[in-house]
Amino acid sequence: MATKLVTEKLSAWFGKKQVLKDVSIAFEERQVTALVGPSGCGKSTFIRCLNRMHELNPGARVDGKVFLDGLDIYGMDPMEVRRKIGMVFQKPNPFPNMSISDNVVAGIRLSGDARKSDLDEIVERTLKSVGLYDEVKEDLKRSGASLSGGQQQRLCIARALAMQPEVILMDEPTSSLDPASTSRIEELIRKLKSEITVIIITHNVGQAARISDKTAFLYLGELIEYNDTKAFFESPKSPITERYITGRFG
């Protein structure tokens, strides 16, 4: 299986505080990789280094390399990187001043190379792919903020997917949602991997086991263990991992 995204000795700092230490990991193409670890271990910081968002924090610094299809993203235009590597956040964040359909194509409008008729088609296709179309097709002009939390998060996923990214990063996308919305999104993630490489942070070990092909465990900024999900949960190599998955800390 091909690797899509590779980090080499990736380190990150907030000011003087180092929060990621030499993380080297290779993400497989069209697979779901779950990132787990106790709160504050650096998961969010890690994935924000993968789309060059970490460097936007004042005083933040990144060291090491990240390769997308063999090309170092830190040598590329950051906007270009973010168009190829989409992101979904913990809290659903649709643009409140935009309608549902404008939210979906917000990113495409930026690159400015789509015609009106194409946009309508993209809105419909993308909303269908996240299973939201039938729920909102009557009023696509309504504000994105008027949807329920779960619908908002699916809208945000649609907004990221509309860019046709090669990789999608998700930072605890279901942690603010009810169980029904959560399982809809889990189902969606499983479906996504036929086309896209998914990297998802989760605090829910069960969720990692349900949806991911591989699981990585971060602890105090270091990568402790990275393995096929089945093996990761059935026979963890590190005692720290074992303690984490049996819920004895974090």
């Binding site: 789309n51 968002m53 936007l56 906007m79 270009e80 973010r82 168009r83 989409g86 992101m87 956040f89 809290k91 964040n93 649709p94 643009f95 409140p96 917000a106 990113g107 930026l110 690159s111 945000c156 907004r159 990221a160 860019m163």
Partner: peptide
């Protein structure tokens, strides 16, 4: 979070 959403789309 709104700024970040827009940045993450390549803005």
């Amino acid at each position: 979070e709104l700024r970040e959403a827009m940045i993450s789309l390549g803005a």
